[in-house]
């Protein structure tokens, strides 16, 4: 178990290194010149050249990369070429917003998805299943931004249940914080919820038709116990795998959702940085996203060994 984890950690480090190369080169392949963007349209070539020298853009790519890597490893992500603010400061203010939003969305998706999946299995061929299926298909087909706009229109402006935009720090006012995040989290989580619902339903149907469930019923166990401990527990093995693969989509979904609800998060930072060719910020943003991806996958792997005892004890047989 510990060995498995260490091996996965090692793989993650390699993944991050490769990612850093791709990020570094990718950013430099973007059309446009940061020196030109900083100097403005009217600048003289001398001024642009001076800025280039100042930013180290005249060095070879390898030197620039090693310089970049060294800085990252020492925790220095550089400064925004646009505002001069340290990138770490920018991340510090925006990352929590996105993390809270994603976490909230995951919780919503897992709770709603699994509950609807179980309901759909319990009432196969009857109206609750049709309803759950229809809901899943709808939320998979409707794009986030459209759902977000509808939600703002009806629930915020029409009914006034939630604030339409903005963000309040958790420490400042927990209730306002929750209210501001609820709608974005619901919008962001629906797609994932739909995937989880469909997977739960399919796995539940398989598990409930299995021999061990039949035997559990023959032993006279209470229905709820059979459904949850025998049916759902075994379905989770598949659900966790599929859900883990989908979590990446959540990060890109967050960019769009933050835009709609005007949340001062990571997504907004990313967009602004791309538009202004703010190399240090873009690099940092992509690097942090990659790190998030790797960590999520690591967490899924760990969770997978928890839900699947056959992996936990390494397939040792008696």
């Amino acid at each position: 178990m510990v060995r498995l984890l260490l091996a996965r950690l090692g793989q993650s480090v390699v993944t991050l290194l490769i990612a850093s190369v791709v990020i570094f080169v990718g950013v430099r392949l973007l059309p446009g010149d940061p020196a030109l963007a900083m100097a403005g349209e009217e600048a003289t070539p001398e001024r642009v050249a001076a800025i280039r020298a100042e930013l180290g853009l005249d060095d070879s790519l390898l030197v620039q990369y090693l310089h970049f890597l060294g800085q990252v490893l020492s925790g220095d992500l550089g400064e925004s070429t646009r505002t001069g603010t340290p990138v770490t400061t920018l991340l510090g203010s925006t990352l929590p917003v996105t993390l809270w939003l994603s976490l909230y969305a995951i919780v919503v998706a897992v709770v709603v998805g699994i509950a609807l999946g179980v309901v759909a299995e319990r009432f196969r061929g009857r109206w609750p299943e049709w309803l759950a299926n229809a809901a899943a298909l709808t939320s998979l087909s409707v794009p986030n931004f459209w759902l977000g706009m509808l939600a703002i229109l009806w629930l915020c402006i029409g009914l006034g249940l939630f604030p339409a935009s903005g963000y309040v720090e958790l420490g400042q006012d927990p209730l306002a914080w929750a209210l501001h995040l609820t709608l974005p989290a619901l919008v962001l989580g629906t797609g994932l919820a739909a995937v989880i619902m469909r997977q739960t339903r399919a796995s539940m149907i398989e598990a409930m038709g299995s021999d061990y469930v039949r035997t559990a019923r023959a032993t006279g166990l209470p229905k709820g116990r059979v459904l949850l401990r025998y049916g759902l527990r075994n379905s989770l093995v598949v659900v966790v795998t599929i859900a883990g693969l989908q979590l990446g989509g959540l990060i890109s979904g967050a960019v769009v959702t933050e835009q709609i609800f005007a949340l001062p998060g990571f997504g907004k930072l990313t967009l602004d940085a791309v538009f202004t060719r703010d190399y240090p910020v873009i690099q940092a943003v992509v690097l942090v996203t990659t790190l998030g991806y790797v960590l999520v996958n690591l967490a899924v792997d760990v969770l997978y060994t928890v839900v699947n005892p056959r992996i936990r004890v390494g397939g040792r047989s008696s």
């Binding site: 021999d211 061990y212 035997t215 401990r229 025998y230 527990r233 056959r310």
Partner: peptide, 10 residues
């Protein structure tokens, strides 16, 4: 079938 009649996660 003893292979399939026990709950594998319990």
């Amino acid at each position: 079938d003893p292979a399939t009649n026990l709950n594998p996660t319990m």
